[in-house]
Amino acid sequence: MKASIRPYAFSALGIAGALVIWQVLATAQVAGNALPSATTVFTTLATILGTGTFWSALGATIGIALLALALAALAGVVLGLLIGSFESVRYATLAVLEFLKPVPPIVILPLAVLVLGPTAEMALFLVVFGCLLPIVMQTVDGVQGTDPVARDTARSYGMGEGEILARVVLPSAMPYIGTAMRLAAPAALVVTVVAGLLGGGPGLGQTIYQAQAAGDYASLYGLVIVLGVLGLLFQGATRLAERRVLHWHESYREVVP
């Protein structure tokens, strides 16, 4: 019994220790005004949480991230099924996809800002660009990984191509898509923040930029803490959703040690 409490005690100790170090460093003025104390940051954070502008920025960030994620998922799965089903399409897109895959959306941020301006559409476009390719690639892998015996069985039962796609190929690609979505969800949040921070799009990124430009360091730290919590929530929520949706799949049926 005692042993099971110990990890939590150490965790609490670690968090408390970090806060104390922060407070001591800040009150010792090691970095002047640029490092506000923990107490200042948390009182500022409490004030920020009471303002309407904060909540509308938070809403914009979450809204853009989720909408873009949904669009990317829809387009990504459709494209992935298309590319995975036809060999010629797969070969035609291979080189382009392989080139674009390691290119992060921040690279085309200047172009997006130039054409679309510092708007929600710009942020949306960047997030979709960033999340689309991994989802497409994973869906293609999933389609390729479909058990050929299951496919043949479905065909011998007289299923049409469309029915096979919906009942055999798509379900067997689901775990791949699930993995892609689990990785894409936090990325969507990150890109939304980047679009606000560097491109002036609406949301918390823009709020952070304003705090930094105005030298309002307490707000800056407070907002970054908010983003950390938000990032954790996104990760937790997607993991939960993945397990919910894929509870039938064998890799989720039992806990793998």
Binding site: R6, P7, Y8, A9, F10, S11, L13, G14, I15, G17, A18, A31, A34, L35, I106, P186, L189, V190, V193, V194, L197, L198, G205, I208, Y209, A211, Q212, G215, Y217, L220, Y221, L223, V224, L227, G228, V229, L230, G231, L232, F234, Q235
Partner: peptide, 26 residues
């Protein structure tokens, strides 16, 4: 591990680019 696990998970939740303004100010 017990001590720094929660901290690491929290820091990992922060979009890496959002840390840049903090380093600029520091």
């Amino acid at each position: 591990r017990w001590m720094i696990d929660p901290l690491i998970h929290f820091l990992r939740g922060i979009p890496p680019v959002a840390l840049v303004p903090i380093f600029i100010s520091l």
